[in-house]
Structures are given as structure tokens and as C-alpha cells.
Nucleic acid binder design. Sequence first.
DNA 1: CTGTTAGCGCGTTCAA
DNA 2: TTGAACGCGCTAACAG
Lengths: 339, 339
Amino acid sequence: MKKKTTIYDIAKKLNLTAATVSRALNNNLKISENTRKLVHETAIKMNYEQNRLALALKSGKSFNVGVIVPRIDNHFFASVIRGIEDVLYPQGYHVIICQTHDQEALEIGNINSLLNLQIDGILMSISNAKLEHIDSFNNLLKKNVPLIFFDRTKDIKGVSSVTIDDFKGAYDTTKHLIDQGCKRIAHFSNDRLLEIFKNRYLGYKQAIIDNGLEFDENLVIETTSKVEEGRKAARLFLDMANGPDAIFSSSDFVALGAIQEIKAQGLRVPEDICVAGFANEPFTKFMELSITSVDQFPLEMGRTAAQIFLEEVKNTKEKRTEKKVVLTPKLIIRKSSLT
Amino acid sequence: MKKKTTIYDIAKKLNLTAATVSRALNNNLKISENTRKLVHETAIKMNYEQNRLALALKSGKSFNVGVIVPRIDNHFFASVIRGIEDVLYPQGYHVIICQTHDQEALEIGNINSLLNLQIDGILMSISNAKLEHIDSFNNLLKKNVPLIFFDRTKDIKGVSSVTIDDFKGAYDTTKHLIDQGCKRIAHFSNDRLLEIFKNRYLGYKQAIIDNGLEFDENLVIETTSKVEEGRKAARLFLDMANGPDAIFSSSDFVALGAIQEIKAQGLRVPEDICVAGFANEPFTKFMELSITSVDQFPLEMGRTAAQIFLEEVKNTKEKRTEKKVVLTPKLIIRKSSLT
DNA sequence: CTGTTAGCGCGTTCAA
DNA sequence: TTGAACGCGCTAACAG
């Protein structure tokens, strides 16, 4: 095991002190141009690389931030992460990505592990809004570790967040379905303890009411974001006597499942039932029967979240300023809802 | 900023030494059961959490491993990562995920950054096989940092790898297309400096030859793994006088693009042209016209890579033993190639 | 301009 | 069984 070269090694070689080397390397002003250059050169020659661990231990900052998402193999979250990286990498930060797979224990565990790693902040999209989680968050806040929510948030005092206007996204989509002539629009929702799903539900409901249709709670069903769940949910409705003529799903994956099931039962999309999803996952565009969806501008969401983090990390002393950024979503109309 | 509690804090409170506390916390044998219990209790009471940075600095092990992939928003890589996590989390390791987006500079930059973070090893799927990269790898090896390739490898002496039998996957797929009656099978390849693409090409070629068909180099085209590239590549062939009656693509995404273009030109899949991809991405199954593809067992690939890492990390002293694990792929036949 | 000293939090000698 | 002292690699405060 070849030992890595430290500033001491290069100090010894140059008959200097480690402190001087450190200063030279950091381009400290009070150093002669001569030694500065000399140090830099021999550093390169000796393959020196700064040990960020030591730096972190010393400074109390690790220059690592944790990003926690339900899962990464989904275009939306992957894009948000990309946006975060865009902003944070140039600032010298590293991004540690953790997945919860929607599992409560993993979510809490990840938070604690990241804390042990002395990360400088956590950007996350929560997958669960149970009480124990709120405790974890409070724990974080007490330690004054910047915490920023994106997309899937829970309204917690003192926590900044970046979301889209889910209400509007849902309202616009529902309105579009109504404009297409649909009268009984079902909604596939998800855990409404999470703000996004609550707001999509509310936007849907409001559009129904505003347009003089009858709001029927029986047409609202709760699922997780899996394709298979969409099939199951659709099955329930297709057996109904007075079934829906449109489905607005909170998830593209669930919308896909619904479409599969509708077709499997010999019905047609959009002729018999219109379908719209949410998130604008790439496959919605690629399908032969492209799927109407709502773009959430994930890149911008990630960038914004990262910028908020940078601000919070600077003003660590001042009192926490809660910042809630809301982006505007965009309805993308495709074949699945065009009659 | 509330300071985190250290072993010193709890030592002071108990009129002990930090050393004693450390030993108690680590369940060192030579400690009285009394103090051991006492220390553990007050540690919990004071919300103590080990500072892994200090531990890492001290021990030289960070218990972090880096995983470098071209991108994460793709089911294959996400699944491999999941497999890696499955094995490494229970062992106390954390996984730092980096994306290269197929950019050379990012790939080298990521390796160096991870090194600075004192990671204990790197598991990666390379996106580029240029010479400068080989240098980076040699650099890693010199420092004796375990390096394990998965999927996209470059044959480097002393580096272990986990791959699937790409030759067989390609051979089986091509054979299947031939069995369907296809005579002129095109191949959409990718950078053949990478083993996987080279082997898929070779498997394809061998199947052609073994079955008495004419191998035509003009039917082989190189693309990157983007949907749009598939459309472009297909366009080239569709304009041809004596065009192909089947396409075997090294990438599902490219296969998808090809199908889109074929349809756009008024031809039918599979009636006019059969198409098969590689990787078994979920969308290949979900499409109305499901796409024939090859499953690469990514979870198993990730788990295996992680296990090799664990072995290498143990035998840091012994000489590096190169281990090449090859998994067997599975052809999944779907509508796009069933005439 | 540069050297000395000290400390970040921990584990590990060597003594007692 | 416990304490004292040291070092991991680095930087910041204080001298000079």
C-alpha cells in the first residue's frame, strides 16, 4: 500500500513547514511568489492530493451534501439530481445519493447515516409522512443542518422547499379532459399526507366543481406509483356500472398501467376512456399511444433547491429563513386524451 | 449551531477518559461491565453519534465506496446500484453515486474526486476507453484502491470485473431473428473499444456466419445509446436499395428509435422489419408493440461486484487477484420480432 | 514572509 | 481495568 503524499512530505523535501506548504497550496496572500510556485510544482511532481477528510474534520464542513429520493431509476428524480449537481459541483460539493425505495426504515436510516458522514446539508423528496419522520426532521433542524425539500414535501416550519404548483397542474389537466367532453373523470391519487398528492387531488376536485360537473368521491382511488397498481385500480373501475370516461392519474406509471388494462379489456383509449398522467416521464412521449402528462421541470427544480441550500449554508448564523419556491407546471397534451 | 457531542463530552460527564469511553463504545473486552453499560446509556442520553470523518481519518478507511456510471435514469444501472447497496449497506458501507453522462472529463474528474474523499474502492461501468482513462485507472491501481468494473469494462490487467456473456446474448438474439426468417440483419453497435459492444458485435457476426448467411459490414452502424440516434440510423438503412429485414440493436433505446422511424416511414414491425434490443429496459415490455430484448440480470451483477469488492478490501495485503465473473444473459422474445 | 503550536474527534499504543 | 499521550492531515492563530 503506497502511502499518499501529505503536505508534510513535500514540506520535508523543500525544507519548509507544513503550514507554509498549506498556505502556498491555498494561494494565501502572505507567501512569496517563489515558494508558492515551488510548492505547487513539487506538489504536482509528488502526486499530492488534498485529503478532504482531514480538511473536513478540521473545518467542520465536509463539502458533501446528501440527496435522498424514493428511487433513482425514474427520469424525474434523476433529472432533479442532475440539476442539483449542475449547481453544486462547480462549488466544490459532492453529492451523495440515497434511495429509500419508499421504505420508512431506509428513510430514517439514510438521514442518520448522512448525519454521521458530517454532510453539510440534505436535499430530499420524502416518501412518507408518518410521525416518526417528523421527529427525524426536527432532529436535523436542531443540529442546524440545512434541510431542503423538493417535490414531495411535508409542510414543516422552518424548512424551505421547491415544488411545482401541483394544484394548477391537476386543475389544468382536469379542465382539459372536461374540454374533451369527459363527464365522469376518475382520479388515481396517492398518499395524501404528502403535499403533492393532496394538491393534485384538490386541483382535480376544484376543476370538476368549477365546471359544473358532479364531484364523486367514489371516482377517487389511492395507489402507489407502480404500473401494476394502475392495472389493479383500472380493473376496479371497469367493473363499475356507471364507470368513468376519463382517468387523471397522479403518476405516469399508474396511467400506463391503466391504459394497459383498459386495452386488455377490449376498450379503447382515448375513444372510450381518456387518460392523463403526471410527471412527463420520457415513455409518455415514446409510446405509440403517447400519454398526456404534466411537465414538472425537474432540472430547474434541482437547480433551485441547490441554490437555496447554498444560501442557507452561508447564513448559518442568522435565523433560518423559510423559503417556498413554487414552479409552474406545463400540461403536455398527447394522444391519450385527444378525442 | 449546537455542537455535536463527542466522546470527550461524555467522558467529562462521567469523570472518565475519552479513551475509556471509546473502548466502552466499541465493546472492548478489557472494560468493566459497569462502565460499559454506563457509557452506553449516557451516550444515548446525550445523543452521541460517532463522527465517521474522524474515524476515517484515523483508520484510513472511510467506509465509503464510489460507484461511477454513465447515468442513473436508466433501469439497468439503477438496478445494478440497487444490487450493490443490497450487499454493501449491511456491511456498514455507504455508496456515493457519480454520473459521467458519457463525458470524458467528468469520468476522470469523478475518479479523482472520489480519491480525495478517501473512498475505499470504486465500482464502475466505464463510458469511454480512451488512453487517458487507462492512465486514471493505473493511477488507482498504484494506490492499491480496489477497482471493479461491471458491464462496460476495458480489459486491464489486475482489474476484476462482472459482465454478462454479451457474445452469447447477441448470438442468441441474432439466431432468433434468423429463425424468424430474416436474411439481412443489420446491427446497431456502439463504441467497440468497450468490451460489451465488441462482444455483441462478434456474437452477431458469428451467428450470421454459422447460419450460412452473408455477413455484410455495411449493415453494421455505430451509434450512441440515445433514442434519436436510433431514428437517424434507421433512416440510413431505410433509404438503402437492398435494406435489412431485421435490426439487432446493442441498446433498447436505439431499438426504440429505430421502430419509431420505421413506422414513421409507413413500414411495419415486425412484418416488414424485425427489431430486437438489449438490456430489457422496462419500456420494452410496456410498449403496445413490446420489444424483444436481452435481460442482463443487473441486480445479480451489482451484488456480485460488491462481493468482489469486499473480498479485495480484505486481502489488501496479498497480491491482487484478478477475477472475471461472467453471468449468463437471457433472451426475452416479444412482439417486435415475432412474425 | 515563514515557523510554531494547537486542535478538529477518534482509536491505540504504553504505562500504571 | 483505566489514564496519558500520540497521530491521522490539515489549517488558523500567534509569533517572529
